[in-house]
Write a protein that binds this DNA or RNA. Structure first.
Lengths: 170, 170
DNA sequence: GCGTAACTGTCGGTATACTGAGCGTTCCTT
DNA sequence: AAGGAACGCTCAGTATACCGACAGTTACGC
């Protein structure tokens, strides 16, 4: 599997000698590529993939408290606060206190937010398709299935597991 | 392809309605998972995947200037400086001026750095294998091939394209 | 109903990663 | 040989993403 790098004779071959044999390395690089493509396609709107994911969730279901929001988009609860604050600063979402549970703050998408999301949707779709463009339909499908399989199986790792209604049909 | 979420009747279905249909979202989440697993396995060494990738490259070829290093590990040139500075602070690499081209600074791995890399190698391997554990051999191979195909085809995107000797056999 | 456990949000700290700007050096063309 | 282009590096700024710790609130067990 190792690409034919230049192996001097005498070197002993270690497992994962090449970065190209490390799935973690490849996934990091691929994530990087996706972010770059997203910014090329949607950069004019001044939005990031995570911010758009958050708007997508809130567009479907508002209001949500921050922890629920975090588990829907799969980011840390201390991170979701930052992202929400930025979106709130642009008037795309609002946060207000929750009378029935004063620990939580309920986040809702605003009308501006809904309009904005709808405008950005198309370039997001273009970004996704450009990203997968090198693969034919069959490979795309296979790739998506493998991604989902790995994510679902490893979901409990780390501080940002997905508890999406789409994972566990509730 | 959309997972059977709860679709109220009357909602119109948009493309990529679910985050689970967005390859970018899945790759982001999977990258997150890999970092978490890496830290679980290698956290005791106080090292990150990128730092270890850098040590891997320098272990194979030292010295390298920072731009070459950046293109080998696929990170931005303004980012590689940060990572190298951290490794230098721990004595794992050194930077020195290059007499033959005074624009560049040559980065080399130290003896401590080589020893450290060798110690961490095993837990990195464990992390990679744990990451792919949910897939059988055939799927792993398919996944790795798809990752490489997407990366090579999209490599020119963004500010951190890989120009590794392993990509373009030089 | 009281005390403890669990939960939500925030804060500070750290690392990755990018953009854009700027500085000094080197290379190349004329 | 001189001038401009290209290159290597740094810096400031911003966003994602984590951890650990803390305060306030709620829930639960006895």
């Amino acid at each position: 599997m190792t690409k034919p790098g230049k192996m001097q004779s005498g070197e002993k071959l270690e497992r994962y000698e090449s970065l190209w044999d490390r799935p973690g390395f490849l996934v990091r690089r691929l994530h990087q590529i996706h972010v770059a493509i997203f910014h090329e396609e949607c950069g004019d709107f001044g939005i990031t993939p995570v911010q758009f994911g958050l708007l997508t969730i809130l567009n479907r279901k508002s209001p949500l408290d921050q922890v629920t929001l975090a588990t829907e988009v799969g980011i840390d609860r201390s991170n979701v606060a930052d992202v929400v604050a930025r979106l709130e600063g642009r008037g795309l979402v609002i946060r207000r206190a929750n009378p029935s549970d004063r620990r939580t703050r309920l986040v809702s998408i605003t009308d501006d937010g809904r309009e904005f999301r709808a405008h950005v949707q198309k370039c997001m779709e273009i970004a996704q398709e450009r990203f997968l463009a090198p693969l034919d339909d069959e490979k795309r499908e296979a790739f998506m299935l493998l991604l989902r399989e790995l994510i679902e199986a490893n979901n409990d790792t780390g501080r940002a597991p997905l508890r999406s209604s789409l994972v566990s049909e509730q």
